[in-house]
């Protein structure tokens, strides 16, 4: 099980702020493919990966990063702080 959290319009498109996902995905990209196949909501949220960022255990990461040992994956648009 892995905790997946969403922010901003990614959260709005998927419809939940967080969920527990039972997955054997080896990388972030594998997880994205798995979710995209699951429901159109995910397909919509993940339709343009260039406009998305990913964090693993609250650190910015990459879509080809491995998920082994990761407890929390976060998907969100580019940040707009300040």
């Amino acid at each position: 099980m892995i905790t997946v959290v969403y922010f901003a319009w990614v959260r709005e498109r998927i419809g939940v702020p967080r969920e527990e996902i039972d997955t054997k995905a080896a990388t972030v990209m594998d997880l994205v493919s798995e979710l995209t196949a699951r429901d159109p909501r995910y397909a919509l949220a993940f339709s343009d990966l260039d406009s998305l960022r990913v964090a693993l255990d609250q650190e910015l990461s990459y879509f080809d990063a491995p998920l082994a040992g990761v407890g929390e994956v976060a998907f969100f648009p580019p940040m707009t702080g300040g």
Partner: peptide, 22 residues
């Protein structure tokens, strides 16, 4: 601006328009 995980959404006075700041 680019590395702290905040996201801003603008909500208009009539409440009809809500846009995420890009």
């Amino acid at each position: 601006k680019s590395r702290a995980p905040f996201w801003k959404k603008e909500v208009s006075k009539d409440g009809k328009s809500t846009d995420w700041v890009r």
